[in-house]
Structure formats: C-alpha cells, structure tokens
C-alpha cells in the first residue's frame, strides 16, 4: 500500500505512515463490523439448532439486530457504583478491548496483507492474549461487589490454566514449521499432506493437537462448555455485572473479537490459513483472504454449534481437564513430535 501512496507524489515516510494508518483502520473497523455480524450469526445458529427463529425483527432477517443493540447501549447511562474504584473500573473495559484489538496487528490475511510481519508473530499473539486476564481481574476487583469478584477469580484461574497447554500445543506446530512468523507457518503448510493438502491438521500427530487446541480455545475465551464465569444461576452476569452502557458492550465486543482471533488462529496454524485447502493450481485464483475467512467462519460455526449443544462443565472438572489431561498429553506430544521429526530427518 505504501507504493500506492508514493505514486500520489508523497515521500516514502509520509506514504508509509498513511499506509500504516489505513492498514490499521482496515483491520480495526471491519473487525468491529464483523464482531457485530458474528454476534447475529451466533444467535441465529443457536436458534436454528434449538428450532427457534432467532433475531428476525430489526432489518431484513434481523440482520441489523446487533446494530440496534449497539445503539441502545450507546444511549444508556453509564453507572459507576459508589463502592467501586473509579479509575480501575473505567480502565478495565478499555484494557479488555485494546488487548482484543491489538492481537490482530500480526495476523496475515493473505501472503502480503499483513500489518506487522514480525519474526515472533505467534509469541506476540500468545503474549497479548495472556494480557486479557487483566481486563477481567481489574473489572472484577474494581467493582467491589461479590459476584463480579468471584467470577473474575474463576475466569483468571481458568484462563491461565488453559494457557499452559496452549503454549505447549503451539510449540508442536512451531516444531514442524521451524519459525514463529505466522506467514511462514502458513507457507510451510503448502502441500504438507501427501503433497496435495495444505494443512498441518491432517497429520496423525498434529490432529490430536488441533482437537486439544480447539477445546483450549473454547476455555480461553470462556465459551460454553467452559463459561463458568457467566454461570447466571451462581454469578449473575459474571465480572461485568456492575457495568452498563458501552462499557458493558466493550466486554462483549472484546470477547467476540477474541473468539474470532481464536478461530483465525485455528485456520492459520492447523488448516492452511490463506492457502486453498488443496494444492491445486486453479484454486489459487481465489484470493487468499477468501479462503482464510471461509475457514475462520467455519470454525466460528463450530464454536456456535458447541454452544448450542453442550452443557456446562463443573469447575473442578474444568480444572481437571486442563491440568490432568491437556497438560500431560501436550507435554508428551512435544517429546513425541520432536523425536519423530528428529528421527525422520526433518531438520536436515
């Protein structure tokens, strides 16, 4: 994009700056739009699975439902409880949403469309997503109210528990790809399966890793069946209980932006990212971003599907799954996969 601005007669620095700002807006604004649409999709999918209609009043097929909701919360009064720690109470939704957006800076949407093509892209995403604990803990603590505090503690313990196994699973992918650069990880998947399939996920050693990664993503984003932080019967609305207006909505937007990020990571790390599913020349005429978004959408559909069909875990079961099942298995797989790669001469 820098070239385009340079062709308008700008110097390199200005062109670069404008291109970067444009790139940021091109990521952030469509992201917010797609979050709004994806909430609608989520509700429609649950409705369809439950044999209901879902939102169908606002706009054609209820398409504008999320925007109506957004306008409603926007015009609401912002309530700051008198017992709350004001500064942190206001800061918490800002942190949540900033962190949810910031992770998108390194996501490659196609071979060239990436804002920051850094060497440690995957580590950056891991680091930023580990920050999302703070939005939760800050909101729960600052509310100075019983239910938000319990919920925040639960959420924090849950998120860090599953982050452990996510770290080990990512190491398995990196062992195959040999790099942390997301674009290079995608490129390494070209013709990976039997020389025709562009995906890590079909490898018999990586498929179980993907299944674990997907489940950990559900836990990390506090989706059903791991949505204990929002267990209405126990904790009212979770750590956002005291929030209102747009501050409340920011938690939702952040949550869905994180869910989309996890879906896109599933696609990038295990299912070929912006590559077509099969390494066959005509398929490359379809732009990479289309493939990526199709895959992401599919994983989002799986998130909704799980939400509509699975009952909630109990907290001790959730901890057991994280620490006693996923952690030992992913540790074992790191050893097995690295041993397999060494033995087969993957590293030359």
């Amino acid at each position: 994009m820098t070239e385009f601005f340079q062709s308008l007669g700008l110097t390199y620095e200005w062109a670069w700056g404008l291109a970067t700002i444009a790139g940021i807006l091109l990521i952030a604004l469509p992201l917010m739009l797609s979050v709004a649409m994806v909430i609608y999709v989520d509700r429609k999918v649950w409705a369809a699975i439950n044999l209901r209609r879902g939102p169908n009043v606002v706009g054609p097929f209820g398409l504008l439902q999320s925007f109506a909701d957004g306008l409603k919360v926007f015009l609401q009064e912002t309530i700051i409880p008198s017992a709350a720690n004001k500064g942190i109470f206001i800061l918490a939704p800002i942190v949540t949403f900033t962190v949810a957006l910031a992770a998108w800076a390194v996501v490659p949407f196609s071979a060239t469309a990436v804002l920051a093509d850094i060497n440690i892209g995957l580590l950056y995403i891991l680091a930023i997503s580990s920050l999302s604990v703070y939005g939760v803990v800050m909101s729960g603590w600052a509310s100075n109210s019983k239910y938000p505090f319990f919920s925040a503690m639960r959420a924090a313990a849950q998120m860090i528990s599953y982050e452990v196994s996510i770290g080990f699973i990512l190491v398995c992918v990196v062992l195959f790809a040999g790099t942390f650069n997301l674009n290079d990880i995608v490129r390494a998947q070209e013709g990976f399966g039997l020389g025709v399939i562009n995906a890590y996920g079909i490898h018999p050693l990586l498929f179980p890793m993907w299944v674990m990664f997907f489940i950990s993503c559900l836990a990390e984003t506090q989706r059903v069946p791991f949505d204990l932080t929002e267990a209405e019967s126990e904790l009212v609305a979770g750590y956002q209980t005291e929030y209102s207006s747009m501050s409340f909505a920011l938690f939702w937007l952040g949550e869905y932006a994180n869910i989309l990020l996890m879906c896109i990571l599933n696609a990038l790390l295990f299912w070929g990212g912006w590559l077509p599913p099969i390494d066959w020349a005509p398929l490359y005429y379809v732009p990479g971003i289309v493939w990526l978004l199709l895959k992401t959408f599919f994983f989002f559909f799986m998130f909704s599907w799980v939400m509509a069909t699975v009952p909630r875990y109990r907290y001790d079961q959730l901890m057991r799954l994280g620490w006693k099942v996923f952690l030992p298995i992913s540790l074992g797989f790191v050893v097995v996969i690295s041993g397999y790669l060494m033995a087969t001469g993957h590293f030359g």
Partner: peptide, 18 residues
C-alpha cells in the same frame, strides 16, 4: 531483542504479575 521482549510479556506480565 524481540524474543526477550516477548518473554517479558509472556512470563512477567502474563504470569508473574498475575
């Protein structure tokens, strides 16, 4: 030192500070 930077975030911010 990009790797050290990532470690600072992952280990110190993500774990120690929690």
């Amino acid at each position: 030192a990009e790797f050290i930077a990532a470690l600072l975030l992952i280990v110190y911010v993500g774990a120690v500070a929690v």
